[in-house]
Design a protein around this nucleic acid. Structure first.
Lengths: 209, 209
DNA sequence: TCCGAAATGTTGTAATTACAACGGAATTGT
DNA sequence: ACAATTCCGTTGTAATTACAACATTTCGGA
């Protein structure tokens, strides 16, 4: 099977015989037409999803009742894992943006899988890494000025990339979303920092001075 | 032993014979004088810490090189878990604020513990829940105005508490820190929202209108 | 109860930021 | 290459927010 080889490459299955493990995991495959809802906010789900093909949108309802796009899922991505493992009701909905195929795996069986303990260990590492990313983003978001947010972000990028010259994995709009600010305000602040000699950049490559 | 009964009550050990499991986990106990450093940023640690007694500060170095207090740990709290399970170098330092006693547990052995698979499952649930908290906080922090941050936060509190009348687990300074803003600015916005009839509150009890 | 300390609320000002509008650059598809 | 579209930078304005200073309230201990 084609999707099996793709699954076997996922970090969740590192060091595990994927085809054998899938039989243990109560794996179900689902097909969804574009526009169809995979998961509805408020429900509970006991399975994590792996998007085998297609694409899906993760949508949250904000305080005013308006739908907000939280993320877009592409093939190979894991989703709903935090809800499945915590048992908490879904705070978001997931809707197929295109015709999609999804593999559902029981969180409980991943957590305690006597034959494949590496699965739980892999899941733990994934969660731990995501935790670090989220914590780091919070660190930037809690700065009180946009200039500080930008510098905090670039500083941590420089740290993780190990170079003074860092490339940002977003466009300007993505960077603004990540930092929780307006795109044009971000551009203005970047220009100001450059004029003040605190920063230099070309497109998505930055250097803190 | 006294600390054993406390440990046994931790969520990590739910459904597990703690005293037996501790023998499997390469548990080491450490004693630290006030001011002593438990963990230093940049190093790696392969063990999670449980603060048995005392208190400790989690400190991060910001973009300017200034130490920033990220969290305070009290007895019974788990720490360094995301670093231990992910294998990433520490982004923070931990310093004993008082004379403290710490129990160190191997993350690897928790992750794959043939005799106590519930440990990994418990850890997974803890990580998943923390993920949800962090994600939710990010949701509030990415709003573009303070009023929206406040309403987003109170709205989600109301949801989780199931009542329209919500009590906030922080004082004003803590709430401002959580929302990444200045305390007095928060007070001003709260007063404005009340005057506009969008919100009512007394001390730490709020109602969205 | 009284005092002192800490937390909270208020106000004013300067700085920052959101937002809208627009021109120019870059990218994409044909 | 060309057109269309998307993305990016700039500007101006109104609104918001940080910050400092100070008044008031709350809280805990003597």
């Amino acid at each position: 099977m084609d999707s099996l080889s793709a699954i076997a490459k996922l970090p969740l299955f590192a060091g595990v015989d994927a085809s054998a493990a899938l039989r243990d995991l109560n794996a179900r495959e689902g097909n969804y037409a574009a526009g169809e809802t995979l998961l509805r906010a408020g429900e509970r789900c006991e399975s994590v999803g792996i998007l085998l093909s297609g694409g899906a949108d993760v949508v949250r309802e904000d305080a005013g009742g308006n739908p907000v796009l939280v993320a877009h899922l592409s093939a190979g991505e894991l989703f709903a894992e935090a809800f499945a493992f915590s048992g908490a009701p879904l705070a978001v909905s997931v809707r197929a943006a295109e015709d999609s195929r999804v593999l559902w795996l029981s969180a409980e069986r991943i957590a305690v899988s006597p034959r494949y303990p590496r699965l739980a260990a892999n899941a733990l590492r994934l969660f731990a890494r995501k935790n670090l990313f989220l914590t780091e983003r919070i660190e930037h978001l809690t700065r009180h000025t946009l200039a500080e947010k930008v510098l905090s972000y670039l500083y941590s990028l420089a740290r993780s990339q190990g170079r003074p010259l860092v490339s940002v994995p977003f466009g300007r709009q993505g960077m603004a979303d990540y930092l929780g600010c307006d795109r044009s305000a971000l551009c203005a602040v970047l220009a100001k920092l450059k004029k003040e000699g605190k920063l230099d950049y070309h497109k998505n490559v930055f250097r803190i001075l």
